[in-house]
Design a protein around this nucleic acid. Structure first.
Length: 187
DNA sequence: TACTCGATCGGA
DNA sequence: CCGATCGAGTAA
């Protein structure tokens, strides 16, 4: 059974808590005839202007403005002039924070995720709803805390050791998930 | 406007 | 290890 995850889900404070809850959810993409849905297996948290790895480290700018909106919208930007990066904006208004989706089941690497799901900057600022063509579903996967690994974020050494070493990368091994308990039988 | 650098990836 | 490739941000 799939349950649509409402955008409002991501508006409360608690960036790291949201990161843990994003693991195991399905990222659903519909674009014309194209359709794909994959379980999220790796995310990174970027939180506030203090975080020198976060795009909000310069305060409100043309690019970072989207991070200051209420959670539940997408932030997509171009990295190295080549790769699109997909983030979920989280937190209340005026608290800039986002979760980078680094991997989904079967696809590792943030640049590969967006390529596989045909995600581009046209989705920047879009709400996480079906009408947007990109949204989240809860398909009953429960990721136990003991499976979640936290490590430093990738590729942010420029932020300095304090911020580069924060264990804000969340991953888990989906093959270690226990089969979901059988629910009510449906036709 | 000139300049630097990057939340990556694929190939040498 | 290195180049691709371009937009954001800073300084001037």
């Amino acid at each position: 059974m799939s349950q649509f995850v409402f955008p409002e889900t991501w508006r409360s404070p608690g960036t790291l808590r949201h990161a843990g809850r994003l693991l195991g959810l399905y990222l659903v993409r519909r674009d014309g005839a194209f359709e794909d849905a994959r379980m999220i297996t790796e995310v990174e948290a970027y939180d506030s202007e203090k975080d020198l790895a976060c795009h909000a480290r310069f305060g409100r700018t043309r690019r970072s403005e989207v991070l200051y909106a209420a959670g539940g919208i997408w932030y997509v930007y171009l990295c190295y002039g080549v790769h699109e990066m997909l983030n979920l904006v989280v937190g209340p208004p005026d608290h800039p924070a986002a979760l980078l989706i680094r991997s989904v089941e079967g696809i590792a690497g943030p640049g590969r995720v967006t390529k596989a799901l045909r995600v581009g900057r046209s989705l920047n600022r879009c709400v996480t709803e079906p009408g947007c063509g990109l949204y989240l579903e809860d398909r009953g996967v429960r990721v136990p805390g003991r499976l979640i690994r936290r490590t430093p974020r990738i590729g942010v050494d420029y932020a300095g050791p304090i911020w580069a070493n924060k264990p804000w990368r969340f991953t888990f091994d989906p093959t270690k998930l226990r089969a979901t308990p059988a629910g009510p039988v449906q036709g």
